[in-house]
Design a protein around this nucleic acid. Structure first.
Lengths: 343, 343
DNA sequence: CTCCGGAACTAGAACGTTCTAGAGTCTCCG
DNA sequence: CGGAGACTCTAGAACGTTCTAGTTCCGGAG
């Protein structure tokens, strides 16, 4: 019976190699204090017995766990991209990551609870709906870094994309192409939505286009974009900035179905640079969040808190970048006065 | 300094409540052997001191960890859907999940290594490139369940979708609509590809359509589908079954760009029922894998191995189901003799 | 009144590591 | 020749739990 036989421990290796447990520990950690010959022999025995260190015992003894807990949502594609960056950054800083997923049946509280029991030294939370008071009570126990969350709090670090700047980049790009009548489809209740909307409005004003400001309510889903498109069809602008790529995809679909050419009749800019926007037949101009910088920033902050170095301001705002693809172009020459095509 | 103060332990609670450590342990676990009044008092103290059990110490002492390790690939959307199902199934069986991700910079070996150190009692591997010998040496140490892997081995359990049956369903559906000239775009080296191709061929033969069998080489990416579409354009069939949804999307795009109506001129069936296939403007008929059943099966097998119950055959094959959407329909009346439209 | 059984509680070992303190042994130098 | 270092190695205590084997106390049966 496989599971019945005890796994090999330091003591087993020590007995077999004829040395003390402590020495085997030294050798296994690669710590100084063992002769070359013995080191060799111990390693050989360990390999032969298939010794695997027990991280539980190791961490129990040496107070530190060098473990960072990450709470992510299984449903959110963007979270997965971010995970990649985090693993990389954590590795470089000498920390391990332990993941806890939020699923439709497994709430954020459960996910956080598991990580607390695992004795993580800090928590990185992606998005999430936790109330400020809950966040505070967790932060009282260990350092917390919240990503993609507007929370401007004194007790947690916050790392997020500069949503307003992203909207500026989108509007600047469109204005540069000659557009003036630019609408915005917003994201409703989602985090970042308010900032992206405000950024759009501010950029429009900065370009002297205040009179053309037009915000259509939307959301994060494909169908939200589709609904918004239907509302725009009555009097289509020459360009639209959309809350995110998925919504933009729904919008694109409805526009094209109704005979509007993209980018001929109308230009569209999404947000997030997801895999979706890269698909050949979508080929969406979009705003990409700088995943690597955000990941590195989050880890850096978490580690700084753990190690007690005060680390400057609690908020880190990372500039996004414009990714130009096929859904944006110059407006029709006559554009700006009336809709380019009757519906 | 937050990280400097020791966290509260059983001993702290015991001292504060004026009882022994052992009794606090009993109370915290809800085990029998403590009076109602004391129980109440201990719980109160624990709450007040913010006591959190240390899972490391707990598991170290009590041999078992009740932990299942899962290795998944951050880049694979399907893996995320599967994770959701696994969390659910594991919870019901009284086990916790600990995740280890494969990323572009973090290989499968590293991911598995971390889990071994965490003293998981079994491993669930998604897909993966590990060689059979490596798999065997891991399986010698603890039970392993491989998902989405063709490996027909005696040392690991295998849970996967019935790829051949999925292809049958696709072909049956198309034949039922009246198609005869049905091609297949395969997945190259990817797991499942050979089975899906063979299933297609077998189904065609079963319907007496052996002469119409036509396999075009493809892959798992959008561009693979696009390339395959270009190769089909010279003499388009009336229907195509494609290795997966992403490839089908690329194929759809090229077909439409070249003036072929879908499903008017040509019907397309994908595989996996990913979010992509559900997008309104893709609306792809596809074969959906039964995620919940596969997840439940994997957990059930892992637990059975851990607990020593032999559990029957090592391989579990789960039937998929056809999801009819908008890319399939009856062929043009004249179809079957010559391409419905010149290119 | 004694004795028994059970409920409530406790002391101390164990889990597999790491860490501290110190014991040998060897080399080198005054 | 004596001793100071520098190595190599070891014994044993910790880490925070759970588990085993008690001990104490109390009520009720004999």
């Amino acid at each position: 019976m496989q599971s019945a036989e005890r796994r090999t421990t330091l003591a087993d290796v020590a007995a077999e190699a004829g040395v003390s447990v402590a020495l085997v520990s030294i050798v296994m950690r690669g710590a100084p204090g063992a002769g070359a010959a013995t080191r060799e022999r111990v390693l050989e025995v360990a390999r032969r017995l298939g010794y695997q260190p027990d991280s539980r015992a190791r961490l129990l003894r040496s107070g530190r766990s060098r473990l960072l807990g990450v709470v992510f949502d299984v449903r959110h594609p963007f979270h997965h991209d971010l995970l990649t960056g985090l693993y990389d950054a954590a590795g470089k800083a000498g920390y391990q990551l332990t993941l806890s997923a939020v699923t439709p049946l497994r709430g954020e509280r459960t996910a956080v609870g598991d990580l607390l029991q695992d004795r993580c030294e800090a928590l990185v939370l992606f998005g999430g709906q936790l109330r400020a008071s809950e966040l505070a009570s967790i932060a009282a126990r260990l350092p917390v870094v919240a990503m993609m969350r507007a929370a401007r709090r004194r007790d947690v670090d916050v790392v997020h994309n500069d949503d307003a700047l992203g909207s500026h980049q989108a509007v600047d790009h469109l204005v540069g192409l000659g557009h003036r009548r630019i609408a915005h489809v917003d994201g409703g209740e989602w985090h970042g939505s308010a900032e992206r909307r405000a950024g759009y409005q501010e950029a429009m004003r900065r370009h002297g286009l205040a009179e053309h400001i037009r915000v259509v309510s939307g959301g994060a889903g494909e169908e939200d974009g589709a609904r918004a498109a239907e509302r725009l069809l009555g009097d289509p602008p020459t360009a639209v900035t959309v809350f995110n790529d998925l919504s933009a995809t729904g919008l694109l679909d409805v526009l094209r179905r109704n005979g509007l050419g993209v980018p001929g009749d109308i230009s569209v800019v999404g947000y997030d640079d997801t895999g979706l926007s890269r698909l050949a037949h979508i080929d969406l101009t979009t705003i990409g969040q700088d995943i690597d910088t955000m990941a590195a920033g989050a880890i850096e902050r978490a580690v700084a808190r753990i190690e007690g170095t005060p680390a400057g301001p609690r908020e880190m705002v990372v500039p996004p970048r414009l990714v130009v693809r096929g859904t944006t172009g110059a407006p029709r020459p006559a554009a700006g006065a009336r809709p380019p095509r009757q519906r």
